[in-house]
């Protein structure tokens, strides 16, 4: 029980409630127009990208290409749909491309041993370039309505994509808890050397992490296309940064080994709620970046302070044990000078 109360997810969730209450108090209309459901709906894309990014961060890596993968998949989906490809096939195609894009990162990081930041920065450029090459640099303005339909489709009074995302969150949470190979992600991030010694397939695990990051960016791309209804060239731009911010905020440890899909979920909703609140408080939209950056910095700084405090506590506890140990040992109590 105490573990739940100490969890970062809960803390951020409480902060979120406080934020919503505060904005609602300043202007009661907030509650009427921006329901939690509304915020949830607009954070779906970020939630999915953040979960994908989380897999990589769990292994102590980083992937700054997920935004570009989102954009690339969105373009593929848009182009395919406009070319008359059937919807399921187009979706499949977009997902395959995102998985392949993730695999390219995975190959670089695991087999060529290129540092993750360099590898994914390189592919960030490559995927953005591909996006431009495929479209010739112009937006995909019209998207067939069949996919847009899903964005507004309500099932049991809740939007279809919210259900989808919810199912994905629950499924990944379950798998990450119970599935042995998924636990490898934690083990590799917690102690890579140790994982290797424990016969854990480190390379395969890393490979899976980057591939999954790609896949989740691909899923996010499908919701993106359906929700927005067109594909601008900036699609997914900066999404990687927001995803990292959401993860860190929700309690995913950048040093690896700690975090759950719930962290990504709560972090992403919080960031979206902040954006939403800013809009509602009539703060111009161009401040979102500044606020997002400041929140990320504040989050990592607080995280640092908390870690230091915990470490100090542990140190003192250990010192106390040592003192007691000393006391118990009769041979040391009689000091001699």
């Amino acid at each position: 029980m105490s573990r739940i109360w100490r969890s970062r997810e809960l803390l951020v969730f409480l902060l979120l409630i406080v934020l919503l209450l505060a904005v609602g108090l300043i202007n009661p209309n907030f509650w009427r127009t921006r329901s939690l459901m509304h915020i949830l709906n607009s954070s779906l894309i970020l939630i999915l990208v953040s979960i994908g990014e989380m897999f990589v961060i769990l292994t102590r890596g980083i992937d700054v290409s997920v935004g570009a993968i989102l954009g690339l998949s969105a373009v593929i989906l848009g182009v395919a749909l406009n070319a008359g490809v059937a919807l399921p096939l187009a979706v499949l195609l977009a997902l395959i491309v995102s998985v392949l894009a993730g695999m390219v990162n995975a190959v670089g990081v695991t087999f060529l041993r290129v540092p993750p930041i360099i590898m994914t920065l390189g592919t960030l450029g490559v995927y953005r370039g591909l996006m431009l090459i495929i479209t010739g640099g112009s937006w995909i303005e019209t998207i067939p309505t069949n996919i847009k339909f899903f964005a507004n489709w309500h099932v049991l009074g809740v939007r279809f994509f919210i259900w989808v995302t919810l199912v994905i969150v629950i499924l990944t949470t379950f798998l990450l808890r119970r599935f042995k190979k998924a636990r490898y992600l934690y083990a590799v991030g917690d102690n890579e050397e140790g994982a290797r010694l424990m016969d854990i397939p480190v390379k395969k695990t890393l490979f899976a992490a980057y591939t999954l990051a790609g896949l989740f960016a691909g899923i996010a791309a499908i919701i993106f296309v359906a929700q927005i209804g067109f594909v601008p060239m900036q699609a997914g731009n900066g999404q990687e940064l927001r995803a990292i911010a959401a993860d860190v905020l929700g309690g995913v440890n950048l040093a690896g080994g700690v975090g759950t899909p719930l962290s990504a979920l709560v972090g992403a909703i919080f960031l979206t709620a902040v954006d939403s609140a800013l809009v509602f408080l009539k703060v111009p939209g161009y401040w979102n970046n500044a606020v997002g950056g400041a929140i990320l910095l504040a989050a990592v700084y607080l995280d640092y302070r908390v870690r230091m405090a915990v470490a100090a506590q542990q140190r003192q506890a250990r010192a106390a044990v040592r003192k007691e140990n000393n006391h118990l040992n009769p041979s040391t109590s009689e000091e001699q000078t």
Partner: peptide, 23 residues
């Protein structure tokens, strides 16, 4: 003054400075 990865710090400030420039 922290042990946070410089990549993450400057990622945050990348956003913040761009936002400040915009605003």
């Amino acid at each position: 003054s922290t042990d946070v990865n410089p990549l993450v710090i400057t990622l945050g400030s990348l956003f913040m400075f761009a936002g400040i420039a915009m605003g």
